[in-house]
Nucleic acid binder design. Structure first.
Lengths: 339, 339
DNA sequence: TATCAACACGAAACCGTTTTCGATAAATCT
DNA sequence: AGATTTATCGAAAACGGTTTCGTGTTGATA
């Protein structure tokens, strides 16, 4: 066990001052070639690495960014993290991941843990409970303290900050339009409660497409489920009581589970009924039939979030100008719709 | 924008010394009731929170743990992270996640970034490239520096540290045994290269079960694929050239993809051919038919890893005693096998 | 030979805490 | 009254760096 070596150790050993060592290691012009070589050789020999904490304390910058997301087992969020990691790491930043598990309290606790010097900025996606409560004081507090914040995907316009979202309304619109073009007349929507920003937008896109095609909006064809748990019974009841020929679902799981139900009823996909889901994840790729989906480009969203955040963190001037980056979703056609 | 308030600010404002403020906030006996109340009230009013970085520097403990894993889009690893997060957070620790993306270099870089004071300990799962190279010097270095390390799932016995694994050999053995009991005679194994610790163990379990039942080991029924990418062609060729009535796959994706291939050939699952996979993830649950799998209990593994690490971090004594915790996998029977 | 710039280095402040060790005054004891 | 406690607080070191500023020693210049 060889403990870490410090500047002080080198200074003592070489009988110079700490400042000399520090400068020598930075190749400062102030220090003679002789001393620099001596110090650098010694440092290399003993594998000296400056202590990150000390540096953080000195320049009030940690090179850490905090990421608070509702869940990690959802494929979409893992791709977002991956994008963040990728960009952040290339810029020399570490990523501290905290999971709110859709809980308001855990979101608050996690932010407070990180907001006291541990990170230079936040990237976060709101928990569903937070969006339900509509309480964003914990976000406002960090922005008031001057900590940069980027909201991604699940956002709110209650707090002023940078945001990265996809055009969920457009995504649902395009998907619904696609189903209409295929001659579908009874198009269902399986979504989550409206307080989720994304769900609301998608419902609007769905309705917009229907209205544009002079089709009625039948509220009984819209199923709203909880975000917290997978309500299998709810979906079963829905298909028992409704006769539909196409379904748009706001996530992969709803889609795949619904497909199995109708398959067990003896229907053929996509001949008898079409499906389109959100999120282009493993489930969509490997489902049978494979899913036509609205791809959300999570990795791209993560990268952009990280870029916006790090730009803010590293910018000198304190211009209070925020932007919202809206990405366009992509329709990926596979086997669950007639192509 | 209200900047963070420090002890010094409070001291100046209340005309006492910094030490008095510090003690007052800790409810020290040294300080009079009057002063304590005054200080505490002021601190609450201005929402004083101690700076984590300063505290870290002082007591050489960051309350951060570093997690380095090969990938995050694999369901198994996300469950591990979730378990780590859960335990660590309950203990007041933050989790810094780094992705090696199966690359040796990125693994080294990430560890070096974190090893200089940013974290109190590591939890990691080796990248496949690292296992291929067999170079574990970066691990040995951190342990030599006295930084606790816990290896999880993808481990090596080249480095002495705590480890958490599941009994992969047993898992494959149980699965193969199950297939044999069902009367399967031509059981294939689709796995990854042997340099991965888990693949090797699973292959052994598979062989052991076969030998125990006096069945021949036909090496042509063992397909070894790269970990790096999904080799669809390799699987297609395999099923073109082999006649099998049961398949054991080391992950979900191999299983699901293989199932589709044989389904498209007109075979019925599980009547004509059975499938068992590893990892009880979304793909397994929602595949059609749903998968019989060997569950690896990733979340549990994460929790145990975090517990072992934090125990080491917080223990005073430096006993160099390491343990390897071996979890038992569980066979989850679903539709891809005859039950 | 006195002056001055260039060179090479060190002292010390600083980042925000914690903690040890006095120090002062009042209170208690002999 | 003098000695000793006790209560209350502050100075300062420490954690491990960075950075400003000062200082002593050269050598060159006038």
């Amino acid at each position: 066990m060889k403990p870490k070596i410090t500047l002080k150790d080198i200074a003592r050993e070489l009988e110079v001052s700490i400042s000399t060592v520090s400068k020598a290691l930075k190749n400062s012009e102030e220090i003679s070639r002789d001393t620099k070589e001596k110090v650098q050789a010694f440092a290399k020999l003993y594998n000296y690495k400056p202590n990150n904490i000390a540096i953080s304390l000195k320049n009030k910058r940690t090179k850490n960014i905090g990421v608070v997301i509702p869940a990690i087992v959802h494929h979409f969020f893992t791709t977002v993290i991956r994008g963040i990691e990728k960009y952040a790491n290339a810029k020399g930043y570490n990523v501290i991941v905290c999971l709110s598990e859709e809980s308001f309290d855990r979101e608050v606790i996690n932010m407070e843990m990180l907001a006291n010097g541990s990170i230079d900025g936040f990237i976060m996606s709101l928990s569903s409970e937070t969006q339900l409560k509509g309480d964003y004081n914990h976000l406002k507090e960090v922005t008031e303290q001057g900590i940069p914040l980027v909201l991604v995907d699940r956002v709110t316009n209650e707090v002023e900050c940078d945001k990265v979202i996809i055009d969920d309304e457009l995504g649902a619109y395009v998907a619904t339009k696609k189903l209409i073009e295929q001659g579908r007349k009874k198009i269902a929507l399986i979504t989550t409660d409206d307080y989720l920003s994304v769900s609301k937008a998608r419902t609007e896109g769905y309705k917009k497409a229907l209205l544009e095609s002079k089709m009625d909006i039948d509220e009984s064809r819209i199923l709203k489920l909880s975000t917290m748990e997978m309500d299998e019974q709810g979906i079963q009841d829905f298909f028992k009581n409704n006769d539909v020929d196409a379904v748009l679902c706001v996530n992969e799981i709803f889609t795949v589970y619904s497909m199995r139900l109708v398959q067990n009823k003896g229907l053929n996909i996509p001949e008898d009924i079409s499906f389109i889901g959100f999120t282009d994840g493993l489930l969509s790729q490997y489902a049978n039939p494979s899913l036509t989906v609205i791809a959300q480009h999570g990795e791209k969203m993560g990268e952009i979030s990280a870029q916006m955040l790090i730009d803010k963190v590293e910018s000198e001037d304190e211009e209070e100008t925020f932007q919202t980056k809206i990405l366009e979703p992509t329709l990926v056609v596979r086997e669950s719709t007639i192509n």
